[in-house]
Design a protein around this nucleic acid. Structure first.
Lengths: 217, 217
DNA sequence: AATAAAACCAGCACGATTGCTTTTTTTATC
DNA sequence: GATAAAAAAAGCAATCGTGCTGGTTTTATT
């Protein structure tokens, strides 16, 4: 019984077998590695071909696996997509945590760190899935808790780094919304030449100043 | 000879037959209407099903036409997409022109007008195609001039409405970049619950103030 | 009214993708 | 080392989208 339920597969990981036995089996480790390889291959395909042309044969090829083996780990292509979406979220959150561990966190470095994240494949793949989720009910159901967790963790982290902002939560929320929507919008437009390269730096500088101005004294 | 070259079909319209004869033929009018119907159907499909599931049979059904008739007007599904992309651009520009014709143009009304545009199907369909264009060379080639024209016209219009901004083009460009990327980013995130509804109004108000502050005295 | 052209429709064949089943190979535990 | 289970591979049938071809109706012009 290798097949896993939709939800379990989506939330993936190695918990499955660990729950049954005390220590993780060697096979379980291998299985987890293969699943990870498939998810990584999916991400690469999403970036390279886009959602509409990311097919199961292409992913299997990219992962260096047979299609049969692939369907052994994920019952359907859709499950693979859902698991990928969850993994992409983990990646983004990990990146934030890493950025936060840097000694000097000022507004500028964090804005730049976020911007740098938006230029990486992780965000591109995430955007492909988010766009698809708009018209795909099952993907949307997976995306919803993902977005929630992302927002929560991001807020937590930000307020941890800048506790003085606790005084004025409304301005804090505004700052985060400004930062997220402006940078993500610019990142997306950039992907198809929708924004002039020379404008980017000016926008970043302006945003940094905006957030500083919003911060309580 | 009903088939049209890729470029001609993409730039579409009724010019084709008008160029051959003095006045537009009745058939040409009918043909143009049918093409328009197909393009409208494509837009609806893009909104309803997303790019990846927008197929030629679905479009034909939506347009109330046979697939054969459809391929009589557009050689391939891709040509239809390209023509749709061009038409979407026209729609967006028309909407701007309409907004500009309103008597009182202040910063606030224009920001709101743009925001209103981003909630309409036109923008959703445009985004679907823009996302697809990232990994589709032919779509990208169609999108490039479209983006260029949009930016140019938008700049022209804005500077026409607020000539005092001519004094400081750098701030003017910054304002436009801020407005476009922030609003579009928020509109896209909104499509998949990526932004809290209650934050939207605050962001809009803040953006309006930002642009006012950037305006030369 | 006749004829030609354009608009439209129905059906075909090919290729690709999908999910599943069956077989082989690898791995773990007795 | 034997055996059972998991992982991986190979093959199958069904479906779907695409582009095209042949034939029919409508429209325009003489």
């Amino acid at each position: 019984m290798a097949r896993v339920s939709a939800i379990a597969a989506a939330q993936a990981g190695t918990e499955r077998v660990e729950a049954e036995r005390g220590e993780p089996t060697l096979q379980a480790v291998k299985s987890a590695k293969t699943r990870a390889r498939l998810i990584e291959a999916t991400i690469r395909c999403l970036v390279k071909h886009g959602y509409s042309k990311t097919t199961t044969p292409k992913v299997a090829l990219e992962a260096g696996l047979s299609r049969g083996a692939m369907l052994h780990h994920f019952d359907s292509g859709r499950q693979l997509m859902q698991a990928t979406l969850v993994e992409l979220n983990k990646k983004r959150l990990r990146a934030f945590r890493r950025a936060a561990e840097t000694k000097d966190h000022n507004v500028r470095t964090l804005v730049r760190a976020y911007w740098a994240q938006l230029l990486r494949p992780t965000f591109i793949a995430f955007h492909e899935l988010a766009t698809a989720a708009r018209t795909d009910k099952e993907l949307a159901e997976t995306l919803e808790p993902v977005r929630l967790e992302f927002r929560e963790r991001w807020h937590e982290l930000a307020i941890e780094l800048f506790p003085e902002w606790r005084q004025d939560i409304r301005r804090f929320d505004l700052s985060l919304a400004l930062c997220q929507n402006l940078l993500e919008g610019m990142a997306l437009n950039r992907l198809t030449n929708g924004v002039e390269e020379r404008d980017i730096e000016a926008v970043l500088v302006h945003l940094e100043q905006q957030i500083l101005d919003l911060r309580p004294t």
